[in-house]
Nucleic acid binder design. Structure first.
Lengths: 156, 156
DNA sequence: ACTATTTAAATCGCGTGCGATATAATTTTC
DNA sequence: GAAAATTATATCGCACGCGATTTAAATAGT
């Protein structure tokens, strides 16, 4: 019983951890062209989809803590890709909006997904298998992620 | 076509990244009891399975770079859990061995997998689904990981 | 109204994670 | 067998990622 559990977890959790880093590495050459990191890319994905959101909106979508998001956004602001400003309705909230430069980056990033699939093609998983993998991970994400914030987590 | 790719990758890569961090968070309360971090736990897993290996052995098993492993091992050494010493055969190599304290930690860690499964039980994935998830991730890990080192990656 | 609680961001400290580079020991090449 | 290439590890700098704490603003409780 305990042995079975032990085997299960040793085999599962490490691959998630390792694959996550390998995927980030796969993105790197494409993101280097834009001068941004993978977490910065994720934050921009959120903003490209819906501009003018709060720090907390981004934090929840990416399942990150404030102390990770705040410095990340400051770097994006220093790069001139976003602007941060206090909300006038609620002065605790900080609104994040894309600059023209940040918006312009979207079209330059448009080819990344396509090229990334090329990098991942050596895995020889079929599209169906990838979809199934994503479906299972989404279920884990929803149940584990909702323990911290019951909000919608979708990046789709 | 390009749109299909875009949807596929936006939906897949982020869940891997988020789930990886959520799993690390799930380990944290158990690892806190031992005073170690998740990457340190992984390094110890390698050593508990096979003692007296080189830095490179650990680096390859964990799919990490030297500049991550070296400081990590130094911290484990400072904690008194391992010892590092130059190989006499090849003085470039550094051999890593468990101290009695490091070896004693294994039995204290023995209940972690079981308890972790409890933390993950809210995901309501069946054992078969977990196994399938792991199988797919292992295929990704093998093909992506082998681009950097053709060695065996198994932690099992 | 006024204090207590909650909420939104920010700050601090520390441990990864990695690109780039350095250093030293071994192996290869000619 | 000496120079060149390779291998094993370490060092440096920077960007996360997060626990813990802080600050300020809004809301709740009385």
């Amino acid at each position: 019983m305990a042995t079975e559990h032990l085997k299960l977890e040793n085999q599962l959790c490490f691959p998630v951890y390792a694959v996550s880093r390998l995927i980030t590495r796969a993105y790197q050459p494409f993101l280097d062209e834009l001068g941004i990191t993978y977490p910065q890319y994720l934050a921009l994905l959120v903003l490209w989809e819906k501009d003018n959101v709060t720090v907390n909106d981004i934090r929840q979508k990416l399942v990150l803590n404030t102390n990770t998001v705040t410095p990340l956004l400051k770097r994006l602001e220093t790069m001139g890709l976003i602007r941060r400003s206090k909300s006038t309705q609620d002065e605790r909230k900080v609104l994040v909006e894309l600059t023209p430069e940040g918006r312009a980056l979207e079209s330059r990033a448009a080819t990344i997904p396509e090229r990334l699939v090329g990098s991942l093609s050596t895995t020889d998983l079929s599209v169906d298998e990838w979809m199934d993998l994503k479906a299972k991970l989404d279920r884990v994400l929803t149940s584990l992620g909702s323990q911290q914030n019951p909000t919608d987590l979708g990046l789709d």
